[in-house]
Design a protein around this nucleic acid. Structure first.
Lengths: 206, 206
DNA sequence: CTGTGTGAAGGCTTTCACAGCC
DNA sequence: GGCTGTGAAAGCCTTCACACAG
């Protein structure tokens, strides 16, 4: 996976800026300086300005940035202008918690289906997303043209499931399994490995 | 927060190497080359070797690394030689799922308590960790000398709770709230922001 | 005079090339 | 001969300094 121009770390920060902008907008603020916005995102003002130059010029010198305009620009750059359908594979503990978590929809994602070996297992009533058997996975991805998947299966099956996803046409995977997925270059993978995050912190605790 | 010598990214990779080493050890492998271990971690062999030089010389030229020995060394560097007590604050959907997730204990962490505004809410029976009221948070941290916390509270209360944690002596926070926490330099924070992870992937889906 | 945009400098991380030890 | 350890080079990202627009 690699997409030209915008550095990975900048892309990450763009999301943070956008959050702050949305909050400002909700508060009726129309204009913001790089200094103020940078503070909210805990970065340096020059960093913010440099980040924005990767996709155009958005500020007015002597004044700052138009909140609504900049937010719209970032949303477009991130490819979030349209609702992205997402599937979840592995509706266990963590998977189910994610299905119930409201934060995704708010940010422009929609769970269109979840998949699990066991579709009969008792799950909270408030999970509205249909839970389908693994056998329908490939077909569903192809038919609905889904490009993003969240992977919450046990570590020992993650690679195998990832292969299936990729074969069916998935382009980006958010991987919660504690495994390094080996995937073709063109596929984007973000790993959220909770144990590793803790280990990492452990190093900084003297 | 800043701890000298070892780069942040290296620390992260050390966890990955250690996972691979543990698997090798379980399979009875005694020696491994930088090439083989690097492949398992999806990095280049030189990267791996350079990473290891930050804390000593562990290989034998012409042979490779002793699996058990290297694993022990990494464990020690990461500060995981002893069981780390961890508390979780915010026992909602996600928090509860994390409490039930077995992956932490396996890697040397122990949830000693969880805290929530509502200690009476119905939760799955298999959550063994005691759920205490927020009022006991500070005292517990001080008494038990807890240094690491997982934060799974709603975004609008995250900063406030973080302040409480830090005042009580917490040194490292794994933050799941969709908020940028403003903390003193000496405090280590790792953010796991699920919506941002998805947004990030969205950029790479053309 | 305020605050953005940006080439250039600086700093950090990865990769290379090869010396050195088993 | 095989594989590690490492100084030096390359590459990438952040920060600086300041030109320039409103």
């Amino acid at each position: 996976m690699e997409k030209a121009d915008i550095p990975r770390k900048t892309v990450y920060r763009l999301s943070i800026y956008n959050r702050a902008l949305q909050r400002l907008k909700a508060n009726g603020v129309e204009t913001v300086s790089s200094e103020a916005l940078a503070t909210a995102a805990a970065v340096k003002p020059t960093q913010l300005r440099k980040d924005l130059t990767y996709f155009g010029q958005w500020g007015t010198r002597g004044l700052g940035y138009n909140v609504a305009e900049l937010s719209k620009a970032i949303t477009k750059v991130l490819g979030m202008a349209t609702l992205q359908p997402v599937i979840l594979v592995g509706a266990g503990q963590l998977g189910t918690a994610l299905l119930r978590y409201g934060g995704f929809a708010k940010e422009g994602f929609e769970f269109v289906a979840a998949f699990d070996m066991d579709t009969e297992r008792k799950r909270p009533r408030d999970v509205k997303v249909p839970i389908l058997p693994m056998g329908q996975l490939s077909e569903f991805i192809k038919e609905r043209n889904v490009r993003m998947a969240i992977l919450t299966v046990p570590g020992n099956t993650a690679q195998e499931v990832a292969n299936t996803l990729i074969d069916a046409g998935i382009q980006a995977i958010l991987n919660f399994a504690p495994t390094v997925l080996l995937v073709p270059e063109r596929i984007a993978v973000n790993n959220v490995d909770l144990a590793i995050q803790l280990e990492n912190l452990s190093y900084f605790v003297n």
